[in-house]
């Protein structure tokens, strides 16, 4: 709450996130936001994979902070976070890895995605301060709904971090309005009723859900959960400002003997699927809701 305000400061997390969506928009496509678990398969390897994701041109990156009981996650992310914990990954370790990504020149917007308890154990204010210092731009906390988020909200505000709220297809209009009003950076739309994990097809009714959220949103909207193939990403990219891919990426990295290369290839394929295919829609035709 007492963050010093320096006029010659570097951009805040919020500004970096906004710029990432705007840049993708200018390129005439949705922003690609891969998720990867910090510390999986071990700390050093995760650093290489994430650097490769950045190098391949991802627009924003979600960094998974492992928790022992990830109840919004499906088997793939559960296995990855469990493996990271077994390798000794901690919250402090995650913040250190984040700082090292910045040292290596990763310039993308970085969002820490992790459950409430490790953050509470670390201390909410301290977590936000240290996350900002390490170079993170925002937080996504899947088990911290609006009703419980006052303290985290204040801590994020004080440190220039975005606090991203989630919505589900089951969210009624009043919750959509509340989350759209409170979120910063972007609005995270969970595509389906279920946990994270690759699915063979997109859920029905996604179009309507994205439209309802977009109508209420003052920020970009991004869709995640269950998007696994470039084709699906392209479909979602036509609806939303951002496309979030996690489990499918982790699956392909896990299968490969060269994890960093597999990650770069995966991101490359996703990006070309998202990019406008001439003579398709041009950049100017994309509707875009900037943050106010």
């Amino acid at each position: 709450m007492n963050a010093p305000r320096d006029l010659n400061r570097k951009p805040t997390g919020l500004e970096r996130i906004r710029a990432a969506f705007q840049a993708a928009n200018r390129a005439g496509r949705a922003a690609l936001m891969p998720y990867f678990t910090l510390g999986y398969p071990d700390a050093a390897a995760s650093l290489e994979v994430i650097a490769a994701i950045a190098g391949a041109g991802a627009d924003l990156i979600e960094l998974g902070v492992p928790f022992s009981d990830p109840l919004a996650d499906g088997p793939t992310i559960q296995r990855s976070t469990q493996a990271a914990l077994e390798q000794g990954m901690t919250v402090r370790g995650c913040l250190e890895l984040t700082a090292r990504l910045r040292e290596r020149g990763v310039s993308q917007a970085l969002l820490l995605m992790g459950y409430a308890n490790p953050m509470l154990a670390y201390g909410v204010e301290l977590y936000a301060a240290d996350a900002a210092r390490a170079g993170a731009d925002g937080l996504i906390i899947p088990d911290l709904p609006l009703e419980e988020a006052a303290q985290a909200q204040a801590a994020c505000l004080a440190n220039g971090l975005a606090l991203v709220y989630l919505l589900s297809p089951a969210s009624p209009p009043e919750r959509i309005a509340a989350a759209a009003g409170a979120t910063s950076g972007f609005l995270y739309l969970v595509s389906l009723n279920g946990v994270t994990g690759a699915r063979s097809r997109l859920p029905e009714g996604l179009e309507g859900f994205v439209a309802r959220a977009r109508a209420a949103a003052r920020t970009p909207v991004a869709v995640g959960f269950g998007i696994s193939t470039p084709e699906q990403a392209a479909q979602v990219g036509r609806l939303a400002d951002g496309v979030i891919v996690g489990s499918a990426l982790i699956d392909s990295v896990s299968r490969s003997a060269q994890p960093a290369r597999a990650a770069a290839e995966f991101v490359g394929n996703m990006l070309s699927a998202l990019s406008p295919q001439p003579p398709g829609k041009g950049a100017g035709e994309r509707s875009f809701v900037g943050e106010n």
Binding site: L71, A72, A116, P142, D143, L144, P145, E147, E148, Y165, L166, L167, S168, P169, A170, S171, P172, R175, A179, V190, N193, G194
Partner: peptide
């Protein structure tokens, strides 16, 4: 209620 959004409704 520290629950994922999908459960809040």
């Amino acid at each position: 209620q520290f629950a994922p959004e999908v459960l809040m409704p």
